[in-house]
Design a protein around this nucleic acid. Structure first.
Lengths: 338, 338
DNA sequence: TAACAACATGGTATCGATACCACATCATCT
DNA sequence: AGATGATGTGGTATCGATACCATGTTGTTA
């Protein structure tokens, strides 16, 4: 393979000059610039970034560690990260942990070994172990979507508590008194916050929180369907279901269809996260929508700012608001039906 | 950051010995092995792979360059690649090209700069430009799913032609004489092969191929819906639709639902690729299923074998058979209905 | 016109690991 | 006993780029 020295020899300059030209750093006369670029082209020179990063101690690579690539929520987030990163000259590596702590830690190790400059992390749990591991190794981190206990890291997320509060309040205002929350894992902050918001809305409305059904499962279709089946067998059966995220909602819809229950006539349904238009028959789910793209983009900006910064400064905790979008799935006022 | 030299000093050995211990290469007495591992642990040593790869000229990193990460087809393929790769000690980087030639080339450049050892490539077109670029830079390649014109590369794919032939033959045997093929891009080999298989089945049955509707679009839900809408306005309207892949099928189903057409009563539907159970209401699509996981795994094995090989050998072209799975969406014999 | 900044280019050391070679020691075999 | 090969350890050069420092030229300003 041709190296920077080969190019330099061909162009009749020093290798450091070639480096300056291809990186647009330092000065270079137009004459030399042309000669170098010509040599690069003729020889099909591809710079070896390993060597460069080794010396400069900056790899210009970021990683997005997320829990489920197949979820449109994270697909959109990935675009947000990549757009901002590539604009700043960074490459992004995508890692999928499947909500598995072990996989997450493995990836963290591999990323550190490969000297990534920074990590956008969607943690699989609420502890800050991965965050600390990275920081101890000099890798910058931003936590997105989910909150971790550490105070010493930038965090960007949505207001799950308030979103859940609003969704629940809506259902209550429609006359529902028995609502089931089909949630994600209890140790994930978004699930915990949605649980809190749910309870608070019930309490504020003077409803008994103890008599509501709350199930903690996983943020997957399969878990959503399974939790819905459990709920349908309860007596008395809830009149409304609150799905913890988009995938749980899809599972819920499937279980309801299997049980020949209509939405919203037989069962009201609301959920977190909007689904891209292409994934659903037609938009009809009432949701607390999160500005995913903006969240991911903002997180990446924070990360890059910190990488560029010459000194340390306070960690930020940014919370985006959710937007309540009322569609058909939440139904109309129960009294109206009677 | 602690380096291998720091660890060596702490353990009272030479750095090369540390290298041997952590890589399990060469000899090391039990005593020294313990001392080194203890030092590694105490100091939280994380090897710098950039340095190692620079010297050894092997990064132990592979890349999977695919066209649509959000398609379950590729999600499964990704697992196939990763499983085989990690078993052999390789890390995998995932790249998504969105069927965009430019993006593909950009990724290829970045991957070469970062010295990946090999690439599993799902090409966005049928030319072999990316393959050649990689090979010229000493990066091994295996082409998966889609065929490229080059003879000098390992290729692994499914028998799209025969799969399409069987699906079409099935529709014909059910009495359909006017079938529309809603296909992917014409310059993608799988779409082209399915087109050929489609035509061959029609010809073999003595049907006029010219009078059938064939539309080339994209392998997406949106395109599937759009093509279906076009077809529904035709006179005479086809009685069966052949979707070029799973996403096109989902778009088709949506368009049919919007048009209040029932499947299979009002319109028979068949497609390529099976969908994971979790994505559909209930398995009811008649499909030509492809062994995606096996295909991806086999491709990765070929790649790794070639990386381990000490000499060159003939390139392989492996073709997996498809499996016809008949479900409800293809309907029953038309005469039966009358 | 002296002084100083901006422009332009190169020499050399170095990042952190491993390749390669060298050199002991020890057990085993004829 | 000497040869042979497996075992065990280290010294030094090197991968390909960039950091840092040095040096010369040109233009500009007081």
């Amino acid at each position: 393979m041709t190296t920077i020295h080969d190019v330099a020899r061909r162009a009749g300059v020093a290798s450091i000059t070639v480096s300056r030209v291809i990186n647009n750093s330092g000065y270079a006369s137009e004459d030399i610039r042309q000669r170098v670029l010509a040599a690069v082209k003729e020889m099909g020179y591809v710079p070896n970034r390993l060597a460069g990063s080794l010396r400069s101690k900056r790899s210009k690579v970021l990683a997005l560690v997320m829990t489920d690539i197949t979820n449109p929520f994270f697909t959109v987030a990935a675009r947000g990260v990549e757009d901002v990163a590539s604009r700043a000259g960074y490459t992004v590596i995508f890692c999928n942990t499947d909500e598995d702590k072990q996989k997450e830690q493995n990836y963290i190790q591999v990323l550190m070994q490969n000297q990534v400059d920074g990590v956008v992390l969607v943690p699989s749990g609420s502890d800050s172990e991965s965050v600390e591991t990275l920081q101890q190794n000099g890798v910058q981190v931003v936590v997105v979507d989910r909150h971790v206990s550490s105070q010493k890291v930038d965090q960007v997320r949505c207001d799950s508590l308030n979103g859940a509060y609003e969704l629940t309040k809506l259902l209550i205002s429609l006359g529902h008194t028995h609502i089931a929350l089909l949630n994600g894992p209890q140790n994930v902050s978004t699930a915990a916050d949605r649980f809190t918001g749910f309870n608070r809305a019930l309490a504020d409305a003077g409803l008994d929180t103890a008599s509501q059904s709350v199930i903690f499962g996983a943020f997957t279709r399969a878990s959503g369907a399974e939790m819905a089946r459990q709920v349908l067998e309860m007596t008395p059966r809830p009149s409304a279901l609150f799905a913890g995220n988009n995938f749980i909602a899809l599972g819920v819809l499937r279980a309801l269809e299997d049980a020949r229950l209509r939405v919203p006539e037989d069962m009201a349904v609301v959920t977190f996260d909007d689904l891209p238009e292409s994934l659903v028959i037609s938009p009809f789910l009432t949701v607390a929508a999160q500005p995913v793209y903006e969240m991911a983009a903002r997180a990446t900006e924070l990360l890059i700012e910190r990488l560029a910064a010459t000194q340390v400064y306070d960690f930020q905790d940014i919370v985006f608001p959710t937007t309540l979008i009322v569609r058909k799935s939440s139904g109309v006022k129960i009294e109206t039906l009677k």
